[in-house]
Design a protein around this nucleic acid. Sequence first.
DNA 1: TTTCATGTAACTTAAAATATTACATGAAAG
DNA 2: CTTTCATGTAATATTTTAAGTTACATGAAA
Lengths: 135, 135
Amino acid sequence: MLLHMAEIDGPVTSESLAGMMQTNPVVIRRILAGLRKQGLVHSEKGHGGGWRLAKDLETVTLYDIHIALGSPGVLALGHRTEAPGCLVEQAVNNAMGEAFDAAEALLLSRFREITLASLSRDFHQRMQHCGNPGH
Amino acid sequence: MLLHMAEIDGPVTSESLAGMMQTNPVVIRRILAGLRKQGLVHSEKGHGGGWRLAKDLETVTLYDIHIALGSPGVLALGHRTEAPGCLVEQAVNNAMGEAFDAAEALLLSRFREITLASLSRDFHQRMQHCGNPGH
DNA sequence: TTTCATGTAACTTAAAATATTACATGAAAG
DNA sequence: CTTTCATGTAATATTTTAAGTTACATGAAA
Ligand code: FES
Ligand code: FES
């Protein structure tokens, strides 16, 4: 969404973003509300209002966005019970927990390396080779 | 489930396993059916029937179980669209895909190191310090 | 004062995961 | 050889979760 916003100068309304993402404007607002709290975007009400990027693409990483989205769980597998009484479950949770933490740490460290600017460059390169005027 | 089975000698019925796992016997059968296909467990019908471990705990890793369960997706985040027309989405999927693959590879390599035997040892150690006769 | 856009709460719908029922198959017990 | 018990599996139902929608309040520009 941010990368699409970057291609447009001037503010973008939730409605037009919803069109791009094929969803509802309210969903867009809910998501962008989180990003605004982290200072990634800025919003204005009323005539000529809408959403605007608040930071340089070079300074924003996927990790920043992940945090802004509320640090959702990264792994589909996980502890069923938070504090299980079953001792087998305790042993399994303990062993798998270490593996999960390692995998999550690796993923997030990769996210820190990926800036929106680099993604934007990749996008523009794809545009060259695409030629589709729809984009 | 397998570790609980390891503590019982003789076959265990789906019903008693369902009691331990607090779920329905059919759910147990469905899961164990996958494990049987990989040769991890063995089942017998009729009187005195039930489920039995088919391998030594030392030779079974969490990775084996993961495969037997059908290699379910490990990451909660993921590609929304398989082959997106949107060039931004292509760029993002490409970059995140590499990070996902690295994280998943790390997790599965950790799973390969964790044998049921090591989990069982951890479990028995917890038993020592627990003293709860319910276990 | 009208129009347009965000800000949110409450509600609805849709999708996915999980659980249940029902019945067939096969093996041991009586 | 009939009853009992347990798995095997399809079909169905329920629960849970995520996603989308409606409704209305707030604030800014025309
Ligand atoms: S629609 Fe996303 S790049 Fe063309
Ligand atoms: S219930 Fe005691 S170890 Fe699982």
